[in-house]
Design a protein around this nucleic acid. Sequence first.
DNA 1: AAGTACAACAACCGCCTTATG
DNA 2: ACATAAGGCGGTTGTTGTACT
Length: 421
Amino acid sequence: MMGRSASSEENGLKKGPWTPEEDQKLVDYIRRNGHGSWRALPKLAGLNRCGKSCRLRWTNYLRPDIKRGKFTEDEEKLIINLHAVLGNKWSTIAGHLPGRTDNEIKNFWNTHLKKKLLQMGIDPVTHRPRTDLNILSDLPHLLAAAANLATSFFDNSNTNNPLISSDTSNHLRLHYSDTAQLAKFQVLHNILQVLGSTTTSSSAANANPANLDAIYNLLGSSSSSSSSSTIFNMDRQPCVDEYLRFIEHSRLDNAFGHGPVGAVFGPHNPTSTTHHHVQSSTNFPTSHHHQLAPHLVDHHHVLSINHPISTTCNSSKIISDGPPAVLNNPLFCNNNNNNNNNQLPPLVSVALSPDGHLETTTSSSLMSNRISNQNYKVNPNNNINLDLSNPNSSTTSTTFEAWGDLLDDETTDSYWKHIME
DNA sequence: AAGTACAACAACCGCCTTATG
DNA sequence: ACATAAGGCGGTTGTTGTACT
Protein backbone atom coordinates (compact mmCIF):
# COMPACT_ATOMS: atom_id res chain seq x y z
CA MET A 1 0.00 0.00 0.00
CA MET A 2 1.20 3.50 -0.74
CA GLY A 3 0.28 6.94 0.27
CA ARG A 4 -2.65 7.38 2.53
CA SER A 5 -4.53 4.79 4.46
CA ALA A 6 -6.84 2.86 2.22
CA SER A 7 -9.45 2.61 4.88
CA SER A 8 -12.68 4.46 4.40
CA GLU A 9 -12.75 7.97 5.68
CA GLU A 10 -15.49 9.58 7.66
CA ASN A 11 -17.32 10.52 4.50
CA GLY A 12 -17.30 6.93 3.37
CA LEU A 13 -15.15 7.60 0.35
CA LYS A 14 -12.13 5.48 -0.29
CA LYS A 15 -8.67 7.01 -0.25
CA GLY A 16 -5.23 5.73 -0.90
CA PRO A 17 -3.83 3.75 -3.78
CA TRP A 18 -6.01 2.66 -6.60
CA THR A 19 -6.71 -0.97 -7.28
CA PRO A 20 -6.59 -2.37 -10.81
CA GLU A 21 -10.35 -2.86 -10.62
CA GLU A 22 -10.90 0.78 -9.82
CA ASP A 23 -8.57 1.81 -12.60
CA GLN A 24 -10.51 -0.33 -15.02
CA LYS A 25 -13.81 1.19 -13.96
CA LEU A 26 -12.46 4.68 -14.39
CA VAL A 27 -10.87 4.00 -17.75
CA ASP A 28 -13.94 2.24 -19.05
CA TYR A 29 -16.23 5.02 -17.98
CA ILE A 30 -14.12 7.80 -19.45
CA ARG A 31 -13.66 5.94 -22.68
CA ARG A 32 -17.39 5.61 -23.05
CA ASN A 33 -18.54 8.95 -21.74
CA GLY A 34 -15.63 11.27 -21.28
CA HIS A 35 -15.02 12.53 -17.81
CA GLY A 36 -17.66 15.24 -17.84
CA SER A 37 -18.12 16.60 -14.37
CA TRP A 38 -15.50 15.09 -12.16
CA ARG A 39 -17.72 15.46 -9.15
CA ALA A 40 -20.48 13.48 -10.76
CA LEU A 41 -18.18 10.91 -12.29
CA PRO A 42 -17.52 8.58 -9.35
CA LYS A 43 -21.17 7.82 -8.80
CA LEU A 44 -21.81 7.30 -12.49
CA ALA A 45 -18.74 5.11 -12.85
CA GLY A 46 -19.49 3.11 -9.74
CA LEU A 47 -16.48 4.30 -7.84
CA ASN A 48 -16.38 5.03 -4.16
CA ARG A 49 -13.98 7.91 -4.63
CA CYS A 50 -14.21 11.64 -4.67
CA GLY A 51 -14.13 13.34 -8.04
CA LYS A 52 -10.85 14.96 -7.29
CA SER A 53 -9.20 11.64 -6.67
CA CYS A 54 -10.59 10.33 -9.96
CA ARG A 55 -9.34 13.33 -11.86
CA LEU A 56 -5.88 13.00 -10.37
CA ARG A 57 -5.70 9.32 -11.10
CA TRP A 58 -6.72 9.92 -14.68
CA THR A 59 -4.50 12.89 -15.41
CA ASN A 60 -1.43 11.53 -13.68
CA TYR A 61 -1.62 7.87 -14.43
CA LEU A 62 -4.37 6.45 -16.57
CA ARG A 63 -4.47 8.92 -19.43
CA PRO A 64 -3.51 7.08 -22.59
CA ASP A 65 -1.03 9.68 -23.80
CA ILE A 66 1.20 9.46 -20.78
CA LYS A 67 4.78 8.58 -21.40
CA ARG A 68 6.26 6.46 -18.68
CA GLY A 69 9.77 5.39 -17.91
CA LYS A 70 13.02 7.12 -17.30
CA PHE A 71 13.57 10.68 -18.31
CA THR A 72 15.92 11.09 -21.21
CA GLU A 73 18.97 13.29 -21.00
CA ASP A 74 17.31 15.84 -23.24
CA GLU A 75 14.26 15.89 -21.05
CA GLU A 76 16.48 16.34 -18.05
CA LYS A 77 18.27 19.29 -19.58
CA LEU A 78 15.02 20.80 -20.68
CA ILE A 79 13.57 20.56 -17.21
CA ILE A 80 16.59 22.27 -15.74
CA ASN A 81 16.46 25.03 -18.29
CA LEU A 82 12.77 25.55 -17.87
CA HIS A 83 13.06 25.49 -14.13
CA ALA A 84 15.74 28.14 -14.28
CA VAL A 85 13.29 30.37 -16.09
CA LEU A 86 9.96 29.34 -14.67
CA GLY A 87 10.73 28.13 -11.19
CA ASN A 88 8.38 25.55 -9.72
CA LYS A 89 5.76 26.01 -12.37
CA TRP A 90 5.44 22.30 -12.83
CA SER A 91 2.39 22.32 -14.98
CA THR A 92 3.92 24.89 -17.28
CA ILE A 93 7.11 22.90 -17.47
CA ALA A 94 5.11 19.75 -18.12
CA GLY A 95 3.45 21.50 -21.01
CA HIS A 96 6.77 21.44 -22.79
CA LEU A 97 7.42 17.77 -22.21
CA PRO A 98 4.85 15.79 -24.12
CA GLY A 99 3.53 12.84 -22.19
CA ARG A 100 4.97 13.90 -18.88
CA THR A 101 2.81 15.06 -16.04
CA ASP A 102 3.55 17.88 -13.69
CA ASN A 103 3.52 15.44 -10.83
CA GLU A 104 6.08 13.21 -12.46
CA ILE A 105 8.35 16.12 -13.27
CA LYS A 106 8.00 17.50 -9.80
CA ASN A 107 8.95 14.16 -8.30
CA PHE A 108 11.85 13.80 -10.67
CA TRP A 109 13.08 17.23 -9.76
CA ASN A 110 12.81 16.65 -6.04
CA THR A 111 14.42 13.24 -6.08
CA HIS A 112 17.07 13.60 -8.76
CA LEU A 113 17.75 16.94 -10.30
CA LYS A 114 17.81 18.93 -7.11
CA LYS A 115 20.48 16.69 -5.69
CA LYS A 116 22.43 16.73 -8.88
CA LEU A 117 22.63 20.50 -8.85
CA LEU A 118 23.44 20.61 -5.17
CA GLN A 119 26.29 18.21 -5.69
CA MET A 120 27.67 20.57 -8.26
CA GLY A 121 27.49 23.40 -5.80
CA ILE A 122 24.57 24.99 -7.54
CA ASP A 123 21.55 26.19 -5.67
CA PRO A 124 18.56 24.48 -7.29
CA VAL A 125 16.30 27.35 -6.36
CA THR A 126 18.29 30.20 -7.80
CA HIS A 127 20.42 28.18 -10.20
CA ARG A 128 23.34 30.12 -8.90
CA PRO A 129 26.30 28.90 -6.91
CA ARG A 130 25.27 27.70 -3.51
CA THR A 131 25.16 30.34 -0.85
CA ASP A 132 24.15 28.33 2.15
CA LEU A 133 26.34 28.90 5.11
CA ASN A 134 27.35 25.29 5.40
CA ILE A 135 29.39 25.56 2.30
CA LEU A 136 32.58 26.39 4.09
CA SER A 137 32.26 23.59 6.59
CA ASP A 138 31.42 21.34 3.70
CA LEU A 139 34.46 22.41 1.79
CA PRO A 140 36.32 19.10 1.59
CA HIS A 141 33.27 17.28 0.35
CA LEU A 142 32.41 19.97 -2.10
CA LEU A 143 35.91 20.07 -3.38
CA ALA A 144 35.96 16.34 -3.90
CA ALA A 145 32.57 16.38 -5.58
CA ALA A 146 33.56 19.24 -7.82
CA ALA A 147 36.78 17.55 -8.77
CA ASN A 148 34.99 14.32 -9.54
CA LEU A 149 32.34 16.01 -11.54
CA ALA A 150 34.76 18.11 -13.44
CA THR A 151 36.95 15.14 -14.14
CA SER A 152 34.12 13.13 -15.57
CA PHE A 153 32.54 16.02 -17.38
CA PHE A 154 35.71 17.03 -19.07
CA ASP A 155 36.61 13.56 -20.06
CA ASN A 156 37.03 13.77 -23.78
CA SER A 157 35.45 10.41 -24.31
CA ASN A 158 32.20 11.62 -22.86
CA THR A 159 30.78 13.22 -25.93
CA ASN A 160 27.30 13.32 -24.53
CA ASN A 161 28.36 15.38 -21.65
CA PRO A 162 26.34 18.55 -21.30
CA LEU A 163 29.38 20.45 -20.22
CA ILE A 164 31.07 19.87 -23.48
CA SER A 165 29.59 21.77 -26.32
CA SER A 166 29.55 20.41 -29.79
CA ASP A 167 32.27 22.72 -30.93
CA THR A 168 35.66 21.19 -31.37
CA SER A 169 37.72 24.17 -30.50
CA ASN A 170 39.33 22.56 -27.50
CA HIS A 171 38.12 25.33 -25.30
CA LEU A 172 37.11 22.90 -22.64
CA ARG A 173 39.49 20.11 -23.28
CA LEU A 174 41.60 20.60 -20.26
CA HIS A 175 44.20 18.33 -18.93
CA TYR A 176 43.53 16.67 -15.68
CA SER A 177 45.71 19.00 -13.66
CA ASP A 178 43.88 21.95 -15.09
CA THR A 179 40.61 20.25 -14.40
CA ALA A 180 41.49 19.94 -10.78
CA GLN A 181 42.34 23.60 -10.70
CA LEU A 182 39.10 24.32 -12.41
CA ALA A 183 37.23 22.42 -9.78
CA LYS A 184 38.97 24.37 -7.09
CA PHE A 185 38.14 27.55 -8.79
CA GLN A 186 34.56 26.55 -8.94
CA VAL A 187 34.57 25.94 -5.25
CA LEU A 188 36.27 29.23 -4.68
CA HIS A 189 33.66 30.86 -6.77
CA ASN A 190 31.06 29.44 -4.42
CA ILE A 191 32.98 30.58 -1.43
CA LEU A 192 33.14 34.02 -2.83
CA GLN A 193 29.42 34.05 -3.19
CA VAL A 194 29.05 33.02 0.39
CA LEU A 195 31.45 35.60 1.65
CA GLY A 196 29.82 38.27 -0.33
CA SER A 197 26.32 37.32 0.51
CA THR A 198 26.86 37.04 4.20
CA THR A 199 28.72 40.17 4.96
CA THR A 200 25.58 42.11 5.49
CA SER A 201 24.10 39.48 7.72
CA SER A 202 24.82 38.31 11.18
CA SER A 203 27.03 35.66 9.69
CA ALA A 204 29.66 38.07 8.61
CA ALA A 205 32.12 35.99 10.53
CA ASN A 206 32.35 33.82 7.49
CA ALA A 207 34.19 36.58 5.79
CA ASN A 208 36.73 37.06 8.44
CA PRO A 209 40.41 36.99 7.58
CA ALA A 210 40.77 33.55 9.11
CA ASN A 211 38.50 32.17 6.46
CA LEU A 212 40.38 33.95 3.77
CA ASP A 213 43.52 32.45 5.15
CA ALA A 214 41.95 29.05 5.02
CA ILE A 215 41.09 29.53 1.40
CA TYR A 216 44.50 30.82 0.67
CA ASN A 217 46.03 27.84 2.38
CA LEU A 218 43.84 25.54 0.43
CA LEU A 219 45.22 26.86 -2.77
CA GLY A 220 48.65 27.26 -1.44
CA SER A 221 48.91 23.60 -0.65
CA SER A 222 47.69 22.71 -4.04
CA SER A 223 50.19 24.86 -5.77
CA SER A 224 53.02 22.81 -4.42
CA SER A 225 51.50 19.57 -5.57
CA SER A 226 51.26 20.45 -9.21
CA SER A 227 53.94 22.93 -9.80
CA SER A 228 53.67 23.09 -13.55
CA SER A 229 49.96 23.46 -13.94
CA THR A 230 48.43 26.74 -14.83
CA ILE A 231 44.99 28.12 -14.74
CA PHE A 232 43.87 29.12 -18.16
CA ASN A 233 47.40 29.72 -19.26
CA MET A 234 48.12 32.05 -16.46
CA ASP A 235 50.23 31.77 -13.43
CA ARG A 236 48.09 30.56 -10.66
CA GLN A 237 49.46 32.40 -7.75
CA PRO A 238 48.92 35.92 -9.02
CA CYS A 239 45.50 34.84 -10.02
CA VAL A 240 44.72 33.52 -6.58
CA ASP A 241 46.10 36.63 -5.02
CA GLU A 242 43.89 38.66 -7.22
CA TYR A 243 40.93 36.52 -6.39
CA LEU A 244 41.48 36.96 -2.71
CA ARG A 245 42.03 40.66 -3.06
CA PHE A 246 38.78 40.71 -4.86
CA ILE A 247 37.09 38.97 -1.99
CA GLU A 248 38.44 41.52 0.41
CA HIS A 249 37.49 44.33 -1.85
CA SER A 250 33.96 43.07 -2.13
CA ARG A 251 33.75 42.65 1.55
CA LEU A 252 34.88 46.16 2.23
CA ASP A 253 32.59 47.55 -0.37
CA ASN A 254 29.73 45.86 1.29
CA ALA A 255 30.71 47.11 4.65
CA PHE A 256 30.12 50.59 3.33
CA GLY A 257 26.89 49.70 1.75
CA HIS A 258 27.68 50.05 -1.89
CA GLY A 259 29.23 46.79 -2.77
CA PRO A 260 27.36 44.73 -5.24
CA VAL A 261 28.27 41.27 -4.16
CA GLY A 262 26.77 41.14 -0.75
CA ALA A 263 23.33 41.92 -1.95
CA VAL A 264 23.27 39.76 -4.98
CA PHE A 265 21.15 37.29 -3.14
CA GLY A 266 19.26 39.78 -1.11
CA PRO A 267 15.51 40.22 -1.12
CA HIS A 268 13.97 40.76 -4.47
CA ASN A 269 11.99 43.63 -3.11
CA PRO A 270 8.94 42.92 -5.18
CA THR A 271 6.84 45.88 -6.09
CA SER A 272 3.76 43.92 -6.86
CA THR A 273 1.14 43.21 -4.28
CA THR A 274 0.82 39.78 -2.81
CA HIS A 275 0.21 37.19 -5.47
CA HIS A 276 -0.37 33.69 -4.34
CA HIS A 277 -0.42 32.27 -7.80
CA VAL A 278 2.14 34.20 -9.69
CA GLN A 279 1.19 32.65 -12.97
CA SER A 280 -1.77 34.91 -13.15
CA SER A 281 -0.09 37.96 -11.82
CA THR A 282 3.28 38.62 -13.27
CA ASN A 283 5.32 37.34 -16.09
CA PHE A 284 7.95 36.21 -13.68
CA PRO A 285 7.69 34.26 -10.52
CA THR A 286 7.86 36.42 -7.46
CA SER A 287 10.18 36.26 -4.58
CA HIS A 288 7.30 35.10 -2.48
CA HIS A 289 7.77 31.67 -3.92
CA HIS A 290 11.47 32.17 -4.52
CA GLN A 291 10.91 31.10 -8.03
CA LEU A 292 12.73 33.66 -10.04
CA ALA A 293 16.35 32.98 -10.34
CA PRO A 294 17.71 36.47 -9.92
CA HIS A 295 20.52 35.84 -12.31
CA LEU A 296 18.03 35.42 -15.09
CA VAL A 297 17.87 39.10 -15.46
CA ASP A 298 20.39 40.75 -17.63
CA HIS A 299 20.72 44.38 -16.82
CA HIS A 300 21.97 45.23 -20.23
CA HIS A 301 18.68 44.14 -21.72
CA VAL A 302 16.38 44.87 -18.89
CA LEU A 303 15.49 48.37 -19.82
CA SER A 304 13.89 47.25 -23.01
CA ILE A 305 11.58 44.95 -21.14
CA ASN A 306 10.33 47.78 -19.04
CA HIS A 307 6.93 47.94 -20.57
CA PRO A 308 3.80 46.07 -19.73
CA ILE A 309 3.25 43.00 -21.78
CA SER A 310 0.50 40.51 -21.45
CA THR A 311 1.50 37.02 -22.22
CA THR A 312 0.26 33.53 -22.01
CA CYS A 313 2.46 30.58 -21.49
CA ASN A 314 1.07 27.15 -21.96
CA SER A 315 -2.44 28.46 -21.66
CA SER A 316 -1.79 29.96 -18.27
CA LYS A 317 -2.57 33.62 -18.42
CA ILE A 318 0.38 35.69 -17.43
CA ILE A 319 -0.07 39.37 -17.03
CA SER A 320 2.72 41.73 -16.40
CA ASP A 321 1.86 44.77 -14.37
CA GLY A 322 5.23 46.30 -14.96
CA PRO A 323 8.66 44.85 -14.67
CA PRO A 324 9.37 42.40 -11.92
CA ALA A 325 11.08 44.04 -9.02
CA VAL A 326 14.29 42.29 -9.75
CA LEU A 327 14.42 43.88 -13.12
CA ASN A 328 14.83 47.16 -11.39
CA ASN A 329 17.39 45.86 -9.05
CA PRO A 330 20.84 46.44 -10.40
CA LEU A 331 22.14 43.89 -8.00
CA PHE A 332 20.66 41.14 -10.07
CA CYS A 333 22.09 42.41 -13.24
CA ASN A 334 24.77 41.31 -15.49
CA ASN A 335 27.73 43.59 -15.50
CA ASN A 336 28.48 43.70 -19.16
CA ASN A 337 28.06 47.38 -19.35
CA ASN A 338 27.97 48.59 -15.85
CA ASN A 339 30.69 49.53 -13.52
CA ASN A 340 30.23 46.72 -11.08
CA ASN A 341 33.46 45.11 -11.87
CA ASN A 342 33.24 42.89 -8.90
CA GLN A 343 29.95 41.34 -9.57
CA LEU A 344 29.74 37.72 -10.40
CA PRO A 345 28.31 36.94 -13.76
CA PRO A 346 24.87 35.48 -14.06
CA LEU A 347 24.75 31.97 -15.35
CA VAL A 348 21.68 32.60 -17.37
CA SER A 349 20.20 35.82 -18.53
CA VAL A 350 16.84 36.79 -19.80
CA ALA A 351 16.79 39.32 -22.52
CA LEU A 352 14.27 40.90 -24.78
CA SER A 353 15.73 41.24 -28.20
CA PRO A 354 14.84 44.13 -30.48
CA ASP A 355 12.44 41.97 -32.44
CA GLY A 356 10.50 41.06 -29.36
CA HIS A 357 12.04 37.75 -28.48
CA LEU A 358 12.44 37.00 -24.86
CA GLU A 359 15.61 35.00 -24.69
CA THR A 360 17.44 33.16 -22.05
CA THR A 361 21.14 33.07 -22.50
CA THR A 362 24.16 31.99 -20.63
CA SER A 363 26.78 34.43 -19.68
CA SER A 364 29.11 33.19 -22.34
CA SER A 365 26.61 32.89 -25.11
CA LEU A 366 25.68 36.49 -24.62
CA MET A 367 29.01 37.26 -26.12
CA SER A 368 30.15 34.32 -28.08
CA ASN A 369 26.87 32.99 -29.30
CA ARG A 370 28.63 29.72 -29.29
CA ILE A 371 25.85 27.90 -27.55
CA SER A 372 22.30 28.00 -28.68
CA ASN A 373 19.57 29.20 -26.43
CA GLN A 374 15.98 28.63 -25.60
CA ASN A 375 13.90 31.22 -27.22
CA TYR A 376 10.72 32.49 -25.78
CA LYS A 377 9.04 34.09 -28.66
CA VAL A 378 6.41 36.64 -27.98
CA ASN A 379 4.08 36.38 -30.90
CA PRO A 380 1.60 39.02 -31.99
CA ASN A 381 -0.99 37.49 -29.72
CA ASN A 382 1.37 37.95 -26.85
CA ASN A 383 1.80 34.27 -26.40
CA ILE A 384 5.12 33.12 -25.17
CA ASN A 385 6.14 30.12 -27.09
CA LEU A 386 9.07 28.07 -26.06
CA ASP A 387 10.71 27.08 -29.25
CA LEU A 388 11.59 23.46 -28.87
CA SER A 389 12.12 22.91 -32.51
CA ASN A 390 15.50 24.47 -32.27
CA PRO A 391 17.79 21.80 -33.65
CA ASN A 392 20.43 22.90 -31.21
CA SER A 393 18.21 22.33 -28.27
CA SER A 394 20.15 19.28 -27.31
CA THR A 395 23.10 21.53 -26.71
CA THR A 396 21.05 24.23 -25.14
CA SER A 397 22.83 26.00 -22.39
CA THR A 398 22.21 24.54 -19.02
CA THR A 399 23.48 25.43 -15.66
CA PHE A 400 26.16 22.85 -16.18
CA GLU A 401 27.23 24.37 -19.43
CA ALA A 402 26.98 27.80 -18.00
CA TRP A 403 29.52 26.83 -15.43
CA GLY A 404 31.79 25.41 -17.98
CA ASP A 405 31.46 28.41 -20.16
CA LEU A 406 31.72 30.71 -17.25
CA LEU A 407 35.16 29.44 -16.62
CA ASP A 408 35.95 29.26 -20.25
CA ASP A 409 34.76 32.57 -21.49
CA GLU A 410 37.38 35.25 -21.54
CA THR A 411 35.28 38.12 -22.72
CA THR A 412 31.83 37.98 -21.24
CA ASP A 413 32.19 39.52 -17.88
CA SER A 414 34.43 42.18 -16.65
CA TYR A 415 34.48 40.27 -13.45
CA TRP A 416 36.45 37.49 -15.04
CA LYS A 417 38.57 39.97 -16.91
CA HIS A 418 39.30 41.57 -13.63
CA ILE A 419 40.33 38.28 -12.13
CA MET A 420 42.22 36.86 -15.01
CA GLU A 421 43.95 39.92 -16.26
C1' DA B 1 19.07 -12.92 8.11
C1' DA B 2 17.54 -8.93 10.32
C1' DG B 3 17.54 -4.19 10.98
C1' DT B 4 18.14 0.47 9.32
C1' DA B 5 18.33 4.28 6.20
C1' DC B 6 17.22 6.24 2.26
C1' DA B 7 15.13 6.72 -2.47
C1' DA B 8 11.15 6.71 -5.17
C1' DC B 9 6.71 8.18 -6.22
C1' DA B 10 1.56 7.83 -6.07
C1' DA B 11 -1.71 10.17 -3.80
C1' DC B 12 -3.47 13.57 -0.76
C1' DC B 13 -4.20 18.33 1.12
C1' DG B 14 -4.92 23.08 1.05
C1' DC B 15 -5.09 27.00 -1.44
C1' DC B 16 -5.97 29.58 -5.54
C1' DT B 17 -8.26 30.67 -9.95
C1' DT B 18 -11.91 30.17 -13.03
C1' DA B 19 -16.57 29.22 -14.30
C1' DT B 20 -21.29 29.55 -13.47
C1' DG B 21 -25.64 31.04 -11.74
C1' DA C 1 -21.47 42.28 -7.98
C1' DC C 2 -21.44 38.41 -5.37
C1' DA C 3 -21.47 33.48 -3.85
C1' DT C 4 -20.40 29.01 -4.66
C1' DA C 5 -18.84 24.97 -7.20
C1' DA C 6 -15.41 22.95 -9.89
C1' DG C 7 -10.98 22.55 -11.63
C1' DG C 8 -6.12 23.12 -11.22
C1' DC C 9 -1.66 23.72 -9.03
C1' DG C 10 2.18 23.10 -5.94
C1' DG C 11 3.73 21.27 -1.57
C1' DT C 12 3.80 17.43 1.34
C1' DT C 13 2.99 12.84 3.12
C1' DG C 14 3.57 8.09 3.89
C1' DT C 15 4.21 3.43 2.05
C1' DT C 16 7.03 0.42 -0.65
C1' DG C 17 11.33 -1.01 -2.58
C1' DT C 18 16.21 -1.21 -2.36
C1' DA C 19 20.83 -0.65 -0.67
C1' DC C 20 23.64 -0.90 3.03
C1' DT C 21 25.36 -2.47 7.61
